[in-house]
Design a protein around this nucleic acid. Sequence first.
DNA 1: CTATCTGCAAAGTTTTTGCTCTGAC
DNA 2: GTCAGAGCAAAAACTTTGCAGATAG
Lengths: 157, 157
Amino acid sequence: MKNLESIDLEKLAKNLKIRMTPQRRAIINILIASEDHPTVEDIYYRIQKINPEIGIATVYRNVALLEKYGVIYKLEIDYQNKSRYEIADIYSMHEHLIDSDTGEIIEFSLKKDEIEEIYKKIGDKLGYNVIHHKLQLFGRKKNRLFSHKKNVFVRNK
Amino acid sequence: MKNLESIDLEKLAKNLKIRMTPQRRAIINILIASEDHPTVEDIYYRIQKINPEIGIATVYRNVALLEKYGVIYKLEIDYQNKSRYEIADIYSMHEHLIDSDTGEIIEFSLKKDEIEEIYKKIGDKLGYNVIHHKLQLFGRKKNRLFSHKKNVFVRNK
DNA sequence: CTATCTGCAAAGTTTTTGCTCTGAC
DNA sequence: GTCAGAGCAAAAACTTTGCAGATAG
C-alpha cells in the first residue's frame, strides 16, 4: 500500500472535469493498493473479484483517460507485450531495475539531488522542460547459477 | 548511419550458432542504417522495397531472436502500442528524451563517468550486475505555444 | 434531466503458431 | 543431404469502437 490513502477522488474528478464512477474509483484504488505493475487484464480481474459486472473495455478506456491526465503512468517496460500501469505518485518517484532473466521488476529510488539535477541540465541543453523521467537498469543477479540468455554479441575486430 | 559498418554478420552468426540468412542480414542492416526506431512493420516494409518476398512472420521471429541474443534492443518506449527496435551499439550508448506532446524521440548521450558509475553502485546495492540501462526523460519543448495534454493531477491538500 | 459513461459484442491491430517447402552450411 | 529457417495463412492475443441503455452530477 502506497502513501496515497488520503487522495480525494471526488476532488480529483472535479479537477479533471470527469465523473467519478465506481469503475474509475475501483481502477484507481486497485492501482494504489498494488505493489506490482498490473496489466489491463490484471486490473480487470482484480476488480471483478469485488465488482463482477465491470467490462474490460471500461478498464481500457479509463486507464487511457487516467494516463492522459497524469493520474497513472503507463510503464515503459512492456514485459510480455502488455501495457502495465502504476499510480502516479510524486512522493515516491522511483526507478526500475528489470531482471534480465526473469523479467522481475525491482523498484528503487534515487536521491533527488543525486541525479535529477543532471536530468534537468540535459533537458535545458536540449530545450525541454523535463516533466518526469524513467530510468531502467537491466541486470542479472550476482549469484545466479546459470543464465537463461546468451549474451554473445561480438563485434568484428 | 551508425558506426557499425564493420560488423561481420557471418562471424556473428557463427558465434550465435544460427544461420545467416538474407532475411536476417536485411533486418540487421536495416537497423544499422536506421536513425529512427522502427517497428516490426517499419522493418518489414523497408525490407520489402528491396526483397518483396519476405514475410512479416519472419521479421517477428527474427527480431525476437536477435533481441534474445543481444544483437538488437527492444525499445522500452512502446509509443503507439508497437514494439520498436534499434541495433545494439555499445559504442554509442544513448538515452532517449520523449516529447510528451508529439511522441518524438530525441537521442542523447551521457558522459560515462557522469552517471554510469552511479548506476553500477545502485546495482551493487541491489545485488545485480547492471548489463545495460535505459533512461528516458519526458518533457515539453520550452517554447511550445500551447499544450495538447492537461497535467492536472492534484493531491488532496 | 442529460451528457457522460458503461457493458456488450464486433471489429481492428499486433503478434504468434502450424505446417510445408526451401536453402544455408 | 539435413535441419534450421522461410513463407503463408490461420489463430491468438491485445486493444479499440459502435451502440443502446444506465447513471453521476
